[in-house]
Design a protein around this nucleic acid. Structure first.
Length: 115
RNA sequence: CAGGGAGGUCAGGUGAUCGCGGAUGGACAGGUUCCAUCUGAGGAAAGUCCGCUCUCCACAGAGCGCGGUGCUGGCUAACCGCCAGGCGGGGUAACCCGACGGAAAGUGCAGCAGAGAAGGAGAUUGCGGCGUGGACGCGAGUCCAUGCGCGCGAGGGUGAAACGGUGGUGUAAGAGACCACCAGCGCGAGCGGUGACGUUCGCGGCUUGGCAAACCCCACUGGGAGCAAGGCGAACAGGCGCAUUGGGGCUGCUCGUCCCGCAAAAAGCGCCGGGUAGGCUGCAUGAGGGGCGGAGCAAUUCGCCUCCUAGAGAGAUGAUCACCCCUUUCACCUGCGGGUGAAAGCGACAGAAAGCGGCUUAUCGAUCCCCCUGGACG
RNA sequence: GCGGGAGUAAUUCAGUGGUAGAAUGUUUCCUUGCCAAGGAAAAUGUCGCGCGUUCGAAUCGCGUCUCCCGCU
C-alpha cells in the first residue's frame, strides 16, 4: 500500500490526466502520465464497474497498488500516473500484473537509468 | 447400511518477511514525519423488497380520491416479519407448501370448439307423441321416409366449465316431477375452543357455477423527504417581482383534490443570477452479544452477572515463502477398503460506508443433533 | 445513498387477458442486355429468465438478471 501523500485523490487531477496526459495501452491495462509540480510521484487507479462486483474491483486495485509500491523506488520523480484496468486483467496472477506495469513504465520513459 | 426430512454451528489453519486504515502513548527536525503497543469485514457486509431509530420540512380539522395489508390468536419499537393454532393441498412417512376476507351488494369477463356458455340457457344426433305417404302382414301391428309455433332433457358428442350422485317410483318418452340414502349449500340450536374452526341435532329449498394477482365491497392502516438528511465554518454578488392594512390576492398547512379555517405578512413569499463539491461534525454503547435463573407450547419477555468488538472518504485486509488441511489431475503400489508421490488451485459466494430488525437472492464445502421410510443382522 | 424507466423478428417499434403484428432489412421469382427502382411470394420469435393466479399470460402478481436516465 502506498502512503496517503503518494495517492492521487482529487477529481480534477484525474480529469487533467484524461484530457492532456500521455497514454499507453496494453491488453490488460492503460497507463496515463503527466508531469506535476511536486518532487514526488502521485498514483491513481481507475477500476470501472464493467470489471465486476465490488469484491473483484477491490482485489484488482490492491494488486495494482502493490505492484506500484514495488516499482516506486526505481521510477523517476515528479509525475502523476494513472492506471486504468481493463477487463482482461481480472483473474490474472500477480506476477503477470507486475511484469505488465514494468513494461508500461519502461516504454513511457519513467524508469530511471539502470543503476 | 441405503434413501429422505427438519434445525444449528463453522466459513481453511500456523509461522516468517515487506506494506495499509484507526486508536492510544512517545520522540523532535513540529508534519503529507518517525517509533512502539493494541486493533481492523459478513452470514449474507449484497439486492434495496418491507419496517423502524435518527434528521430536516411542516402540522386546526373534515370529506373525496390514491395507495398498503388481508384465516385466527399471540409476540415485537415496527413490518409484506416471527411463533402457535385452524382450514386446504402434496408426500407411504418424517415433514413441506398456501396473497387463505367477501361471488344470494353491484358492474364486468369467458376466444376457438360446440346445438347451446351463465336471470335460468339450449335441441344437431336422440327418446317419444300426432299427421301424411310407402313397404310387409289376414289382422293387431312392425319398419322406412317426411312434416309439426308438439313434449322431453335421460344417452352420445364439444369444451376448462353444460346447473348434484346412486337406486327406485313414475311416464307416451322422460326429468328433483316425487321418494330413500349420500355429497354440497343456507338457517337455527346445543356442546368444545379467547378465536379461526370443529362436532351433534333439527329445519329449508331440492343445487342456487368460475374469475376479486378484473373493477369493486368490507375491516384495519398510511404526512413528505432522506446521512448526498442535517449542523458548524469557508467561498461568493447581488438583482427583480408579489403585497402594502381589514377587502381581496399571494404563500404555507409536502401523495392529489376540494371545503372550511388558521398562520405568517419586508425578520414574508416567489423567480433569476452567483458561490462551494474542499475541511470539521453527524459517526458508533446499541430495540447490542454471551451466561445463569424465572414466566410462556413457542416467538418473546423479566431479573442478575459479564463482555466492548471496524469507522474509510479515489474509499483501509494485499504480496511472497514454508508446513499442515481441502479439491482436482497425473503416476506408482494394492490385501480393492485405500495408500504413497508430484503438479495445479484470486482455495465457495462475496468487501462495512448513519445505525438496527426482517425478507429475498448467491454460496465449494465441513460438522453436530433429532426424526421418517426400506433392508440386513441380533 | 435515493428516485424513475425499459427489455417483443436481424433492426426500429405496435400489441394491456383469447391463433404474436407493422415498417425496414434478408431470400426466391417476374420485369431488364445488366444494375437500380417497381411487382409477386416466402422465411424469421424460449415475447430477458423463473415461479404463481387463470380454462387460457407478451399482457395480471411475486422473485431475479441486464441496460438506460435523473438527484449532488
Amino acid at each position: 500500500m502506498l502512503h496517503k501523500h503518494l495517492r492521487l485523490r482529487q477529481r480534477d487531477d484525474f480529469k487533467r490526466l484524461r484530457l492532456s496526459g500521455e497514454t499507453r495501452t496494453q491488453a490488460l491495462m492503460t497507463l496515463s502520465m503527466l508531469p506535476n509540480a511536486l518532487t514526488h510521484n502521485r498514483y491513481g487507479f481507475i477500476v470501472s464497474k464493467q470489471l465486476g462486483s465490488a469484491a473483484v474491483r477491490n482485489r484488482v486495485k490492491r494488486q495494482l497498488r502493490e505492484a506500484m509500491r514495488m516499482l516506486h523506488p526505481s521510477l523517476r520523480e515528479g509525475y502523476d500516473i494513472v492506471i486504468i484496468a481493463r477487463r482482461a486483467l481480472v483473474g490474472q496472477s500477480f506476477a503477470v500484473i507486475v511484469r505488465t506495469v514494468q513494461e508500461l513504465t519502461r516504454q513511457s520513459g519513467l524508469m530511471r537509468e539502470e543503476a
